[in-house]
């Protein structure tokens, strides 16, 4: 293929695609800023400056840590409890019949309704982990149940023929198979966890990125609000690529580079 043609197709390669997309977003952002002014849409430069001031002023780090702590606590509880119940429900038909409608019910209740309930029941401290847990657990549960249920019957027959004990069945068949179902769901749930945590903080007003957003809103400081959002998106991307992706590579080397379809940061 000749030079210019190849360059054009080079743009379609993932790395260049990401760069092109980012440039496009920044360009549109600038255009919006030029059209509507700094109060409605501060420029990317002003936003970065606000972010820098937040970091230097010591506002950003404690807020990020607090949001992260609440979101991860709820997320981990959702993974452990949702995953364990999902495994059991996948193995035991009657339990699945009981738990599935409950999970569907929990999924159907909007996150913001849980925020209100959590604040009434637990106060600001426990509201974040609880809300995150209650919104993420059904997602993890559904994926785990489907994973446990959809194990290839041929593999089960093979394992039975070799008379392997139940512990081996669990460790060598069910768990690895479930993991492949769980990873896309975990990416979705983790993104959701952060968003729900921020929303809960916005209402509870007890610190965290959400509280920062609420303050920025009260002060009509759009640049600062945008800076908090930037921070949140950065956090999501960092979790995805520094936590989930390495974990997946470590736990699923047999997949090679072929990653399963995933919703990632765009989830929820």
């Amino acid at each position: 293929m000749s030079g210019p043609r190849r360059d054009f197709f080079g743009l379609l390669k993932p790395r260049w695609g990401v760069a092109t997309g980012l440039v496009l977003v920044v360009a549109l952002w600038e255009a919006g800023h030029a059209a509507y002014g700094p109060v409605v849409l501060p420029s990317p430069g002003e936003t970065l400056l606000a972010l820098w001031q937040m970091v230097r002023g010591g506002d950003a780090l404690p807020a990020v840590l607090q949001t992260l702590r609440g979101a991860l606590a709820g997320f981990l509880a959702a993974v452990v409890i949702g995953g364990a119940l999902g495994l059991l429900a996948g193995l035991l038909e009657p339990l699945r019949a009981v738990l599935r409608p409950i999970a569907t019910l929990m999924l159907g209740i909007p996150a913001v309704a849980w925020v209100v309930l959590a604040l009434l029941w637990f106060g600001a401290d426990l509201a974040v982990p609880f809300t995150v847990w209650v919104t993420c657990a059904p997602i993890v549960f559904a994926a785990a149940a489907e994973g446990a249920r959809s194990l290839d019957p041929g593999l089960l027959r093979m394992a039975t023929a070799f008379r392997v004990p139940r512990t081996v069945l669990l460790a060598d068949l069910y768990l690895p198979h479930m993991l492949s179902h769980l990873f896309p769901a975990l990416a979705t749930a983790l993104a959701l966890a952060l968003k729900v945590a921020v929303m809960t903080e916005l209402f509870s007003g007890a610190g965290g990125i959400g509280d920062g957003l609420a303050t920025a809103r009260a002060q009509v400081d759009t640049a600062r609000a945008m800076a908090w959002i930037l921070l949140l998106v950065g956090l999501l991307l960092a979790l995805e690529f520094l936590l989930l992706e390495p974990l997946r590579r470590h736990l699923e080397p047999w997949r090679g580079d072929k990653s399963p379809p995933r919703s990632g940061v765009s989830g929820s």
Binding site: G154, M158, F162, V164, W254
Partner: peptide, 27 residues
């Protein structure tokens, strides 16, 4: 001590060939 080979190899996709061979020994 019977051992089966099925038409479908029924290998564990998440284990290497070596670990698949060793699988029956876990019993």
């Amino acid at each position: 001590r019977p051992a089966f080979v099925f038409q479908d190899p029924c290998l564990l996709p998440w284990r290497t060939a070596r670990d698949n061979i060793a699988f029956g020994l876990k019993a």
